[in-house]
C-alpha cells in the first residue's frame, strides 16, 4: 500500500508541467557553465574557488554546478515541490480527498517528504550526470583535479561526485522540510515559495555581516560553503559533517512542525 502511494506521489510530481520546466532549467546550468568555460578558456583561468580549476577539468563541472545552484536554484526547486505538496493540494481541494481516502496525516507527511526526497535526488543526479557529460565534452578530462592540486582517477572522481550529490540532496531536503512546514499552514503555494526563498536570501545576507557572527551557526546557509571540502584531497570531513548536522536539525524542526500542524489542522 505504502509503496504504491509513494509511487503515485512521485509520478504525480513528475507529471507536473512546472516540474518538467524546472528540471529542464536545472539541466541547462551545467551545459551553460561548460560552454562558458570552454569559450573563455583562451585566457589564463583564475577566479576564486572551484571556477579556477574548471579549465580542462570537466569532472569538476557537476560539483561546481551543484555548489553554485545550492545557493538559490535548488532551494527554489525544493520550495516549489514543498509548496505544491501541501498548500497546492489544499488549494485544489485534493488534500481533502487524500485525507478521506483515508491517508493518515502522519503518513501523508511521510509520503510528501518521500516525494520531495526522491525528486530532489533525481534533480541533483540529473544535473550531475548532465554536468559530467557536458563537462567532459567541452572541457575534456583526465580524471579529476582537486583543489589541493592532486589528480584523482575517474573512478575516485565519480565517488566524490556521488558523495556530493548525496550531501546536496540532503541540504535540499532539509530546506524542503521547512518549506513543508510552511506549506501545511496555508493554501497558497506562492506564499510558501516566497517565504522559503526570502528566508534563504535573508540568511545569506545575514551571513555577510561579521557583526552577526553569533547568529551564523544557526543559519542553514552557513553550511553551504563548507561542502566544497569534497573537492579537497584528502577530504576534511569536519565542515561537511557540521553542515550536514546543521541541515539535519532543520530537517527535524521542519518535519516536526509540519507534523504538528497537520495533525491538529482542520481541513
Amino acid at each position: 500500500m505504502i509503496t504504491r502511494q509513494l509511487g503515485s506521489e512521485v509520478r504525480w510530481m513528475l507529471r507536473r508541467p512546472r516540474t518538467i520546466i524546472g528540471l529542464f532549467g536545472l539541466v541547462l546550468v551545467p551545459i551553460i557553465i561548460s560552454f562558458g568555460i570552454w569559450t573563455a578558456s583562451d585566457e589564463g583561468g583564475g577566479g576564486p574557488g572551484l571556477a579556477a580549476i574548471l579549465k580542462g577539468n570537466g569532472m569538476v563541472v557537476p560539483i561546481f554546478t551543484l555548489f553554485l545552484s545550492l545557493n538559490l536554484l535548488l532551494p527554489l526547486v525544493a520550495s516549489i515541490w514543498a509548496a505544491d505538496g501541501l498548500a497546492g493540494e489544499a488549494q485544489h481541494g485534493t488534500l481533502r480527498g487524500l485525507l478521506v481516502a483515508p491517508v493518515s496525516r502522519v503518513r501523508l507527511l511521510f509520503v510528501k517528504l518521500f516525494g520531495l526526497t526522491a525528486m530532489s535526488l533525481f534533480a541533483v543526479t540529473l544535473m550531475a550526470v548532465v554536468g559530467i557529460i557536458a563537462g567532459t565534452a567541452f572541457l575534456g578530462t583526465d580524471g579529476m583535479m582537486t583543489l589541493s592540486g592532486t589528480t584523482l582517477s575517474t573512478a575516485e572522481g565519480l565517488v566524490r561526485i556521488v558523495l556530493f550529490i548525496l550531501l546536496v540532496t540532503f541540504q535540499m531536503v532539509s530546506i524542503g522540510a521547512v518549506a513543508l512546514a510552511v506549506s501545511s499552514t496555508t493554501e497558497h503555494p506562492l506564499v510558501v515559495q516566497a517565504a522559503t526563498m526570502t528566508t534563504i536570501i535573508v540568511f545569506q545576507v545575514l551571513g555577510q555581516f561579521p557583526s552577526l557572527d553569533w547568529l551564523h551557526p544557526f543559519l542553514i546557509t552557513t553550511g553551504f560553503p563548507g561542502l566544497i571540502d569534497v573537492m579537497r584531497d584528502p577530504i576534511p570531513f569536519g565542515q561537511i559533517w557540521d553542515s550536514t548536522l546543521l541541515a539535519g536539525c532543520y530537517l527535524l524542526i521542519g518535519t516536526g512542525l509540519a507534523a504538528m500542524r497537520l495533525i491538529t489542522k482542520d481541513n
Partner: peptide
C-alpha cells in the same frame, strides 16, 4: 494523536537543541 503530537514536538525540540549545540 497525543503520542504523535508529542513525538513531533520532541523532534522540533531535538532539532532546536541540536542547533544550539552546534552553535
Amino acid at each position: 494523536r497525543k503520542v504523535t503530537l508529542a513525538a513531533a514536538a520532541a523532534g522540533v525540540l531535538t532539532g532546536a537543541a541540536g542547533l544550539s549545540l552546534l552553535a
